[in-house]
Design a protein around this nucleic acid. Structure first.
Lengths: 218, 218
DNA sequence: GAATGTGAAGGTTTTCACAGCA
DNA sequence: TGCTGTGAAAACCTTCACATTC
């Protein structure tokens, strides 16, 4: 049974991110036709602790069977409802440079129900060209087109220098959820959800680790 | 003055990731010729608290001046030393699909000193072709080439289904730091640093937020 | 017997608040 | 006066440990 959101419980960001990991792992397990999985095994696969897995899931309900574990397909379904990926989300891509066009072709997004319906650019040479079956639209037509196609989420893959300007336009068009790939922190009104994907961050984390690792053998 | 690593202090992952944010913000400020910045303003730009900024920096030294703030260029330089980005890192890309080739052209990596020296694929049609001035090498020559070019970090952008197999080869070639873009959790020996960039996670986080946001007005 | 679900304990991270310095 | 640097307090998150259930 799924606990109803009672407006009190505060679910942490870490818990939500781990739900993504569980969801991905369960999708693979389902393909392998595994029927149940224990918190221990799920934890091993995602490098977490069994208690962590159980606690995360317990925030949302009791999905397991004592002595047995969790039913793979059912748990996957439950998590998809929690994350809101048990449906289709209409997405628009703004910016058709390297990253933008790579993401338009990125299968993983579609698999999770994030369907890119529109792509925009401000470069006249790109506008009208075909990208994986989608015609690049002029960014000046964004407000109208976003509305007409019921777009709920915008992915921003534009150069950092113009990102704040473009995000302002996206916000003005009424969009409330934005995933930003530009390497800069953007300002948006409090009713707009913005997440920024910083691809350098993980590389820098590796660089920090290599630089500060303890000397071998001691 | 920079505190020397005394082997005791444990710096949290969050602190390191925020250092990346500060570094990025400081790079922009430096371009704008701003000479000093307060923890308050830096926090505002990165949506953090001033105390957080000061505490993070205090783990590594006293970089500021009371009553004035932090000197932009100097702080940037200090953070670059802490993160280990005050040097060049030789990087290889494995996998030249959508994501892989987009990242090869991604300027941000080069700007931070991560120079992609080699690119690999196992597709015979791609091997030998030219990508942004680099010839795609056969993955079977990986061990030799990685050694010859003193590669320290490998970026993995291959399909999930072959990712574990390929990462095993990368590890066998002696690489100790891997950034994985395949949407799967990989197993590596304890002396190998692996970070996985999960691009669906942030989209799913947005989806969760949209799904569970409190109803407007109440 | 095996593994979940969960209060309580323990640990870590963030925020507070203020002494100290330019 | 303004803002850093930092112990102490508060908040938050993870792990423990065990009652509970299949």
């Amino acid at each position: 049974m799924v606990k109803k959101s009672d407006g009190k419980r505060k679910i942490s960001e870490s818990t939500i991110k781990r739900l993504s990991l569980y969801y991905r792992a369960l999708s693979l397990l389902e393909k392998e036709n595994q029927e149940t999985i224990s918190s221990k095994e799920l934890a091993r696969r995602e490098k977490l602790t069994p208690a962590q897995v159980r606690k995360d899931l317990s925030f949302f309900g009791s999905f397991g069977t004592r002595g047995l574990g969790y039913p793979v397909s059912e748990l996957k379904q439950q998590i998809s409802e929690i994350l809101g990926v048990n449906r289709v989300w209409n997405v628009a891509m703004v910016g058709v440079g390297n990253i933008g066009s790579a993401l338009v072709s990125y299968k993983e997004f579609q698999k999770q129900g994030f369907i890119i319906k529109l792509i925009f650019d401000n470069d006249q040479r790109k506008i009208g060209s075909n990208h994986k079956g989608l015609i690049v639209s002029d960014i000046r037509e964004m407000a109208r087109l976003l509305r007409e196609h019921h777009i709920e989420i915008v992915i921003l893959a534009v150069p950092a220098i113009v990102a704040q300007y473009i995000v302002d336009e996206v916000v003005a068009a009424g969009i409330k959820a934005i995933l930003n790939f530009a390497p800069i922190n953007l300002q948006v009104p409090p009713d707009v959800y913005l997440r920024t994907e910083n691809m350098s961050m993980e590389l820098e984390y590796l660089s920090f680790t290599l630089t500060n690792r303890r000397p071998p053998a001691e």
